[in-house]
Design a protein around this nucleic acid. Structure first.
Lengths: 106, 106
DNA sequence: TGGAATAATATCACAAAGCGATATCGGGAA
DNA sequence: TTCCCGATATCGCTTTGTGATATTATTCCA
């Protein structure tokens, strides 16, 4: 395993939490998410992004809606109630993680 | 995919960051880590924990040392310099994640 | 009106990880 | 020795990650 890959594993969960967060703020489509995540330094290829969206939808955390925007067909995703609870839980656990690992900044 | 499994995916990275953190504080062995993680609500089976330790060691983030404690043979892991840099980076990214997703607590 | 180009999403194929179950290893006790 | 047990290691199967490629659907322009 390359270093690059192992480091990425650390943050795959972060990426999913980001997706849930954005879908809780406003409906978002795949390309939007790809660009938004890239702005945060997470480079996600379509082969990762779309299957992730499908999995989150299957799990009932995202709801999909087809729209045509500028003549392009897009799938917009919005967090469901369940999705928002999971996001809330992720917030809590991320806080706890930080509380612990930041106290001694070695 | 069950909900349980998908939720766990969110936090697998957290678990690895925890491991790196504890190994940066003091040398730790597998059983210690299992118990410590359980205290934080992360239940990690040996089939996950030990391969993870091996991967972190192969990547050069952990250094292993065999010790005999109370007549039992244990492998203690300590974060290397590279491991500490990666941990530092994880801290930074976790902070950024929280800064974003907490600002609007919907 | 073709039909090439483009945008957005979906899928394929392979490598790798997650994990419960099971095996192994090594020291102590008897 | 032999058995036991704590600790670690590995197996086998399922699932995920991902770059590359395909599919779908619309626009543009000769």
């Amino acid at each position: 395993m390359t270093d690059h890959r192992l480091i990425r594993e650390f943050f795959l969960g972060f990426i999913k939490i980001h997706i849930l967060y954005h879908a809780a703020q406003a409906p978002v489509c795949g390309v939007d998410l790809g660009e938004e995540l890239a702005r945060h330094g997470y480079h996600v290829s379509p082969g990762t992004l779309y299957p992730t969206l499908h999995a989150l939808e299957r799990a009932g955390y995202l709801q999909r809606e087809s729209r045509t925007v500028h003549g392009r067909r897009r799938k917009y995703y919005c967090a469901t109630g369940d999705g928002r609870s999971v996001l809330q839980r992720a917030r809590k656990q991320a806080c706890e993680l930080l509380d612990e690992i930041v106290e001694n900044d070695g």
